[in-house]
Design a binder for these strands. Sequence first.
DNA 1: AATACGTGGTT
DNA 2: TAACCAAGTAT
Length: 331
Amino acid sequence: MSTEITDTSRRLAPRLIEDWFLANGRDLPWRTALPHSSGCTPWGIMISEFMLQQTPVIRVLPAWEAWMNRWPTPADLAAEPASEAVRAWGRLGYPRRAQRLHAAAVAIVEKHDGAVPDTREALQELPGVGAYTSAAIAAFAFGRRESVVDTNIRRVHARLFSGKALPAPSFTAAEARLAEELLPEDRAESVTWNAAVMELGALVCTARSPKCEECPVAAQCAWLAAGSPEPEYTPRGQAWHGTDRQVRGAILAVLREAGTPVPRELFLERPDGWDGPAGTGSPDLSWGGSGVLHHLDALHRLKAPAEQRERCLAGLLKDGLASESDAGLTL
DNA sequence: AATACGTGGTT
DNA sequence: TAACCAAGTAT
């Protein structure tokens, strides 16, 4: 491909994408990069960024509202035990994020006088805050000019400018360089650009079935121009069935529901004669409610080997996602 | 560098 | 239905 096409794309794309964003961007409650946004505290933006790590917007929305109401400042969250954060995390997935967000709140209170730090460097010192999240908070909460690169932005760059169906499996130096080159010099513009490209990737330039008919930069797209070639590799799927993650998830589901410690034995084997949540031989879990029985049944239906259950229990304890007393396990 | 880590909607 | 995939981070 000629560099001429690429140069033209780079010159035209920013305005087209930003105009599209202003007209089509979602008015998300944590978004401050849109003119009609209601505004949001840095802490609110930080919560959203944690929740959005690998969890889609649609599922984050209600959880974010609940967290903002319950813990409107870092100090509010830091004042409660981490287990409360994990329980309130609900079914967003990767509960270690709740644990890290709590730890980050504690660090903010202890080292930053309760205020979310406003530089990428300081942010990245916080638990659970990596390259992406530090840049995103610095840009979206504090209006800084940072190169924000998430999976959406990587995909848009790969297609629009590199002519590839998908970005490389891991983030490359070349991608970082490209993102840096593309970032507008003006601070305010750079913030909008980051949000706009991300939104384009989330709504139009999606991974599996991109809506190229709706794309504001279809005419500039190197991938389309090349005839939409197939990916150069096949992404390796995320195994689930039979994995420790599945078993850990099932154990966590029980723990989230339970209001009191759950005896360890109940995780290791199905109680004698018990055939389901409301079935015969029901164990005495009146203290936990029907939700506990339901999730306990789901765990046993996995028929995970004994050593796997032991390993997962030990892992959760080691990770601090569960704790154990004589009475049993709790969050 | 590769792998572990949840959960549920979409294809 | 089985796979794929999502505003990643830590080890």
